[in-house]
Write a protein that binds this DNA or RNA. Sequence first.
DNA 1: GATCTGACTATCT
DNA 2: AAGATAGCCAGAT
Length: 107
Amino acid sequence: MMMKSDLYNLVFSYIKTIPKGKVATYGLVAEALRAKRRGINGHLVGWILHKNDSSMVPCHRVVDRNGRLAPNFAFDGAKEQRRRLQVEGVTFVDDMHVDLERHLIKK
DNA sequence: GATCTGACTATCT
DNA sequence: AAGATAGCCAGAT
């Protein structure tokens, strides 16, 4: 198979489980992955997504702990990410911040 | 195989 | 309040 690596697989597997209209934080993903691979931090998660640039994965549902969207150099631009989330029913408290209280998977 | 890098987060200054 | 530092890991070179 062409699996990049175990980490990629873990990250994508988790992200794919994020329900539509929900979001997860990098820290949350990292925490979940920590169950499989010890000591994983948010850097790993975001960085893997960056390297992979997977349009096939709902990486737009992953935000930082403040609910802020990824930086502009991800996706087609932060505004594109915001548009995708809004289409899925995610509400925003700011142009760049999702409403974590309503859409964060869990805490 | 050593060094650099990274879309994070918490803590300190 | 905003910038700097530390902690942590694995992929890329």
